[in-house]
Each structure stands twice: as C-alpha cells, then as structure tokens.
Design a protein around this nucleic acid. Structure first.
Length: 546
RNA sequence: GCGCCUGUAGCUCAGUUGGAUAGAGCGUUGGCCUCCGGAGCCAAAGGUCACAGGUUCGAAUCCUGUCAGGCGCACCA
C-alpha cells in the first residue's frame, strides 16, 4: 500500500503537482476494487484537463510494484481502482496466524505514558447506569491506547472531604439518630437512598460507643470507606480495574493547591475583585473569568476550580504526555476553564491538555416508561443491578456500540427479555462456531500457525471477503484509538461476524479434501483470533461455548 | 439570551473525516434444517440524510441561517 502510494506520488511529481496529497482508500463497492485513488480528480482542476484523461495518463506513467496489484482501471468520474493479487490476501492470513493475540496491535505510542481518568464518582452513593457507560468507555479507550503502544494508567479521582461528603455525613448521622429513636430529619441537600440507612446500621454495629452519632469525623470516614468499597465491588463485577485512586484531599494535604495558586498569581493572570481572588481565564479561551478563592463573607476558601487545575498539573508532572478525561457531557463547562487554568500557569503544558471524551446521558426505560436517574438504591438503576440482570458482556457491549456523543436509551426490559437477540451474542456466537470446528475435529487450534498449510485453495467469494476484512483489523484499531472511539471496533466485529457466519453456512471445513480442509482450518483459526482480539479490546469475553 | 452535543428506514443506530447506486440490527413479508451449534443463512419491502441557502468536479459529511431534542451557563461540586 505504501509502495503504491509512493508510485502515485512519483507520477504526481511528474505531472507537476509534487505537493498533491495522495489518498488511497478502500471503496465501498466490491466492483470498485480493493484500493482506489481520487488523484486524477484532485489534479484535473489545476491541470485544466478532464479527470478521466488525467487518470489515463496517471495509469500510463504508473510503475506498479510487482506481484501485489493484479490490475488497475479507470472508473466513474476519474477514480483509479486497484485490484490486489490473491497472493496479497494469503499474506493477510499468515500475518494473523503469525501474530496471534498480538495481531492488530502496534507501537505507534512508542511506550509514552497516557493517563485515562474515568468514573471518578464521589463516594456518596452506589454507581448508577451513567457511571456504567463511562466505565465501559474509559476502560475500552485505555485498552485501545495500550493496543497502539501507549503505556496507560487508569485513574479514578474523587473527593472525600467536600460539601457533598458533608451532606452524606449528616445524612448518615440523621439515620443513626433515627435508629436511636430520635426524630431526626435528613438535612437539605442530603441523601435519601436506603443505602444511607444501611451504612448507619453498620456504623452503630461497629461503633457501639457512638450510638448517638456524635463523632462526625468518624461517621464521615466510615461512610466514605463503605461506599468506596461498594463501588469497588461494583466495578469489579463489571470487570474494570484502576491503577490509581487520586484523592482531592491529598491535593490540599500535599500543598499542591497552595502551590498552584502561588504559581498562577506570580504568572500574572490573577486579580482581586469584590474581596475574591480571580483568574483571568478569558485570556486563554474561557468565556468568563473564574474565582479561585472566595471572599471572606463567602467563607474565604478555594473553589473547586483550583484543585481541578492542581490535579491536572499533577498529571503533567507525573510524566503523562497525554491525559484523557472521560466525562459526562454535563461537565463540558469545565473543559475550557481547566485548560485555561493550565495555560495561565505558563508551564509549557500543551494547549489541548487534557483531552476530553464527553459522552451524552444515558436514559433508562423500564416498563415502557423513562426512569429518572437519581442516586437512590432500590430504584433498579445501579450499575450493579444492571450487570447482575443483563450480564457483564451485554452491558459492556451495549454501552460501547454507540458513539459517545449520541444519547443512549437503555431499555432494561428489552435487554433482559430479548437478551438472546443481542448483537453481542451474534458476535460471540461466530467465535463459538469457529471454536466448535476445532472441538469437533479434536484439533488444537493453537497448532494452526502460518505454516500449517497452503492457503491458496481459499478462493470462494465468501473467503476472499473474509480475508479482506481480516486484513482491515489493524487499521480499525488504529483509527479507533486515534479518535478514541471504541464503537468502531464493535461495528467492525459485527461485520466480521456476519461474514464469518455466512461463510460457515455455505462452506464446510471438516470432511473436505485435505488441501481444502487444511486451508479452511487456517481461515477459521484466523477469524477466531481476530474476533477474540476485538472482543477483548472492548472488554467483552470470547467464549468457546455458549 | 449565550455555549457544547445531537437530528439518517417503523424503532435503535453506523456511515472509513469531501467520493461512486446512503448501510446494519430489530421489526415486517417470503424462502432455507439428512449438513462442523438454526443463538444461523438467503431474499424482499422500507429514505426529501430535520428544513433552506452556500462552497466545488462531487456534500449525510464543510460554511451560514431556521426548526426540534439533550446538556451546561454560581464567590455549588
């Protein structure tokens, strides 16, 4: 492909257009060949000639690399279509079988370090469905980066000491007093879920000396730990693991917050007004300036903006050349101000740092009606309940099959009731069928390597189609990683599974004449490898049996 | 009012960053089990790509405007 591109560039130079951008793409239509270029269309205007005439001259001057291209032809308004020789497709097969589980991986990231922050829910309640989308998305993005050569840290940031935690603490305290027979009300802004009562009961059980709930600090620590542990259990059930848990309170304790403010002031972008300390973020693309330290009458403490900036400084200083934040779209307002804060430090942090992957909200329908999301346990909306009901694989797959910036309707009834028709089963089933071939043949699939047999008997249309798809997988992974869009992998897997199921239905493997059987075993093994690699990449299992 | 995201088949959504006749699943209709797992395969019907302009060889894709939905717009986090 690179050879072809260079050959075309040489022709372009010859025609006096050395700066032409040579584009090679895979045509949608099979009749349009395996690769196509629009070079003639691009050049036609500046050469003031008809596109098809330019295409003819390109073709005449083109020196094709030997053995790779079978034929080339002019089509449509002036496209030049190239047809790959069969040998090239056979090479795909040996590439897949040779690389195995490494097929599709690359080292584009060259071992540089990337931080992917996601979920980052404060420990004020169980994880809900929206966190589930974020967990699936963040984990898959991290995996995509790993597959393309980045050294990835999965990070979870949470606040264990702010106003929301105080609300939680007082809510638990109120329940402790209720359990003691008092008539205590949940404070305004407090948490009403049943889990609050459960925590209160546990607290009383483990702290008999404080049955009255007087020790707020002890209650806070207990509640935060209990909810963090519950969230960890939920994430574990979902198959997501983090490398680093970062605490907001540590930024204060480690004086990073103070240091950040000092740097911002000395960089000259801060000013005082109405008794508060402001940062002129409008100098760096924000739409309004931000308060860093509140005025004395408002309490005189820092706004959340400051630790947010300090936190991202810490990512930079820990050596992450990329920081990717996966967040709900309701947080999009923070994007401009965090970046502006980092620029205002004048520490040579790149302008686009950190990168954001924002996903739209998940709405949940149950019984045909939309259910409002809230942090109430028992409302059938926690991630844990969804995973327990629908299954980890289906939940992961559903959350990833859509682009992040389209809204997602998760119909719980449908996911449960019609789980057999879920696309995830279709893809997994294709994998199971390939595995079944080796099971029935009583063969070890891992023994089928690139030198297992001669792949040339694979000539049926369904087979060349499969080989082409297998050859596309590395590019799919590369693009999905580049755009941080795991749904591209899902779409590819469905296409591959469709082609694999059609092939399986029309062609037998076992019992055919030996050269054909052995060649098809290679193809079946290659399909199995790529399906498994892709499913693993998006966090879905590839079962041998279902 | 301002900003970000979205609008594609009855429903849920893709669309390889500007390419050729806009695709898939579900649903609907009609076929296919002596066969490695039918959780499957083959086919049909179904479209003013929200609407109106513009850019150019060429637009679902880029620009402008309008309409509709979602989410933001604190000295809250």
């Amino acid at each position: 492909m690179d050879q072809l591109r260079e050959a075309l560039a040489a022709v372009a130079r010859d025609l006096g257009a050395a700066d032409a951008d040579v584009q090679l793409e895979r045509p949608r239509e099979e009749a349009h060949g395996d690769l196509a270029t629009n070079l003639a269309l691009q050049l036609a205007k500046r050469l003031k000639r008809k596109p098809r005439d330019v295409a003819a001259e390109i073709l005449a001057k083109l020196t094709l690399p030997p053995g790779v291209i079978e034929k080339a032809e002019i089509a449509g308004p002036g496209f030049v279509n190239f047809f790959l020789a069969e040998r090239a497709l056979g090479a795909t097969l040996t590439a897949v079988l040779g690389a195995g589980e490494r097929y599709g991986r690359s080292d584009a990231g060259a071992g540089r370090r990337a931080n992917v922050e996601f979920v980052s829910a404060n420990p004020t309640g169980p994880l809900h469905v929206g966190h589930g989308r974020q967990a699936a998305l963040g984990d898959a993005i991290a995996s995509l980066l790993e597959a393309t050569g980045w050294q990835v840290t999965r990070e979870y940031y949470y606040n264990d000491a702010g106003a929301q935690i105080a609300n939680l603490t007082h809510s638990v305290q109120a329940w402790i007093r209720r359990l003691g027979g008092e008539d205590a009300a949940i404070p305004p802004g407090g948490y009403h879920g049943e889990y609050v009562r459960d925590i209160a009961e546990q607290y009383v059980h483990e702290h008999p000396s404080d049955a009255g709930g007087a020790d707020l600090d002890a209650i806070r620590q207990f509640a935060v730990r209990a909810l963090r542990e519950e969230q960890d259990r939920d994430l574990q059930a979902f198959g997501v693991a983090f490398d680093v848990y970062a605490l907001e309170s540590a930024l204060y304790a480690g004086s990073q917050v103070d240091t950040t403010v000092r740097r911002l002031v000395s960089a000259g972008h801060a000013y005082e007004r109405d008794g508060a300390l402001w940062l002129r973020t409008t100098d760096f693309g924000d739409d309004k300036d931000r308060v860093m330290r509140k005025s004395a009458e408002k309490g005189g403490d820092f706004t959340y903006f400051v630790p947010d900036v300090a936190y991202h400084v810490s990512k930079w200083e820990r050596g992450f050349t990329r920081a990717i934040n996966v967040q709900g779209a309701d947080h999009h307002g923070t994007v401009a101000r965090v970046r502006a804060g980092l620029q205002a430090l004048e520490m040579a942090i790149p302008e686009g740092y950190p990168e954001y992957v924002l996903h739209q909200m998940v709405s949940v329908t149950k019984g045909g009606e939309e259910v409002k999301l809230s942090k109430r346990a028992g409302s059938y909306l926690t991630l844990r309940e969804l995973v327990d009901d629908v299954g980890r694989d289906a939940v992961r797959y559903f959350f990833l099959m859509r682009r992040g910036d389209s809204q997602l309707v998760f119909d719980v009834d449908l996911a449960k009731k019609q789980s057999e028709e879920n696309p995830v089963y279709y893809v997994q089933y294709a994998h199971t069928r390939m595995a079944g071939i080796f099971r029935n043949a009583d063969r070890d699939p891992t023994a089928v390597g690139p030198d297992f047999a001669d792949p040339s008997p694979l000539s049926a249309p369904a087979e060349t189609e499969l080989l082409k798809l297998l050859g596309q997988y590395p590019a799919v992974v590369e693009k999905a990683a580049e755009f941080l869009e795991p749904h591209r992998v899902i779409a590819y897997l469905e296409e591959l599974a469709r082609a694999a199921n059609a092939w399986y239905h029309h062609h037998r493997v076992l019992g055919e004449p030996a050269p054909i059987e052995r060649a098809r075993l290679m193809l079946a093994r290659a399909v199995q490898i790529v399906l498994r690699n892709g499913l693993t990449l998006v966090g879905v299992s590839a079962p041998e049996r279902m």
